[in-house]
Simulated assay, not measured.
Amino acid sequence: MSMFSLDPAQQAWCARLRALAAERLRPLAEAREPGRVNRPLVAALGELGLLERLFEAGALELCLLRESLAYGCTEAETALALQGLGACPVAQAGTAAQRERWLPGVRAGSAVAAFALSEPDAGSDAAALTLKAVPKDGGWRLSGEKRWISNAPEADFYTVFARTTEGAGARGVTAFLVPADRPGLTGTALEMLSPHPIGALAFDDVPVSGEDVLGERDRGFRVAMNTLNLFRPSVGAFAVGMAQAALDAAIGHTARRRAFGGPLKDLQSVAHQVAEMATRTEAARLLVYAAAAAYDEGATDVPKRSAMAKLLATETAQYVVDAAVQLHGARALQRGHLLEHLYREVRAPRIYEGATEVQRTIVAKELYAKELYGEELYAEEPPA
């Protein structure tokens, strides 16, 4: 990839992914039961090698994968991303035994993973989580609740973040790999605006041991942030894919739809609106690619770039989808219309993996950290 465009091989790969999403994966998505894990869809992602590619890809390739799938089938994109989000901590921080036990199934699409960070009173403020890990019998017992966990309560295992040291904030959190069949672990499904599998988990004295720790004790917050720094630009890519789908729908509709004596595109107000939608979409895409490239290059300012990319891309997608609905009129609000679907899908990314306001806070924190502590110290240990 050049600084500002994809090379021919990347463009061809993205085109193949779009076609695959529309032709092979969308029918599986449409046959789903709303609010449930679509295991046939997850299995298809495995059979097609996309889950394997997910774990082999760098950040830029992950963004291209998510953007292309989102354009053709948002459900397939989400299923793939949730596998990565739930299993990435195992791939990055797990022991050899943990990786050998769980990752082959995730790659094949036969094991469903979940990332269990959010709580009723600790969503975007992840350092405030209260799920307790109380020492017992040489290990710990987990007690508390997680909420708004994608793939819960149907996942096969969960990456769970729990407090092992009271009063230590982010430095007192440990990451655990918790199989779904552990005694004391139960869950309930939640009905959300968009019918994705999402639920709450209750931990009633759930046993975990040192063999279940991901990384180091009290260093789980870093495991979570490393995962989010990788996935935040690709959340932006997901948003860009939806924005592009909405933009293309708007271009096609306004070119064909006649009103006031001619096609809508001949109205300056309409043409300027479409131009604005296209400009914002391309700006968001470039910022996402830049953030992903920075991650792949090991840049020190990845948290800032990742936050910027998610911030701009998700806000842009909301704007573009809403504008496309407005240009289509009432037909876009009819159940089953592409834009009705995108309108429900586009809202959540502005909240999950750090809400828009949190991304602005991260960007500001990063900017002032470099100013206050100097370039050299910042490069050695940028803030989480």
Results as ranks from 00 to 15, higher is better:
R36V: 08
R36N: 07
V37N: 09
N38A: 11
P40R: 02
A43K: 04
A44G: 02
A44H: 01
L45S: 02
G46L: 09
E47P: 02
L48D: 13
G49S: 03
L50K: 05
E52P: 02
G58T: 07
G58Q: 05
G58H: 00
A59K: 00
A59F: 03
E61K: 03
E61C: 12
L62C: 15
C63W: 05
C63N: 12
C63F: 07
R66S: 15
R66D: 13
E67N: 03
S68T: 07
S68Q: 05
L69N: 04
Y71M: 10
Y71H: 11
Y71Q: 05
Y71A: 14
C73W: 05
C73N: 06
C73K: 01
E75T: 14
A76P: 01
E77L: 11
E77V: 07
E77F: 02
E77N: 04
T78I: 13
T78P: 06
A79Q: 04
A79L: 03
L80M: 03
L80V: 02
L82I: 08
Q83D: 09
Q83T: 00
Q83V: 01
L85C: 08
L85W: 00
L85S: 05
G86I: 07
G86P: 12
A87P: 01
A87H: 07
C88L: 15
V90F: 03
A91D: 09
A91G: 12
Q92A: 10
Q92K: 14
A96E: 15
A96D: 14
A97K: 00
A97C: 04
A97L: 09
Q98H: 06
E100P: 04
E100W: 00
E100N: 06
E100S: 12
R101D: 11
L103P: 06
P104T: 11
V106G: 00
R107V: 09
A111L: 14
A111Q: 04
V112Q: 02
F115P: 02
F115Y: 06
A116C: 07
A116I: 06
A116M: 05
L117E: 09
E119P: 13
E119W: 07
A122D: 02
A122V: 04
G123Q: 13
G123L: 14
D125Y: 12
A127I: 02
A128Y: 00
A128P: 10
L129Q: 01
L131I: 07
A133D: 03
A133V: 07
A133G: 03
V134M: 12
K136Q: 14
K136L: 15
K136W: 10
D137M: 15
D137N: 10
G138P: 05
W140Y: 12
W140E: 00
R141N: 05
S143T: 15
G144I: 13
G144L: 14
E145V: 15
K146A: 06
K146Q: 04
R147K: 10
R147D: 11
W148F: 14
W148V: 07
S150A: 09
N151L: 14
A152L: 08
A152D: 04
P153I: 04
P153Q: 06
E154I: 06
A155Q: 08
A155E: 11
V160T: 06
F161M: 00
A162T: 04
A162F: 10
R163H: 12
T164A: 12
T164M: 08
T165M: 13
T165A: 15
E166M: 15
G167P: 03
G167K: 00
G169I: 11
R171L: 15
G172R: 08
G172M: 08
V173Q: 09
A175L: 01
A175G: 12
A175M: 07
A175H: 13
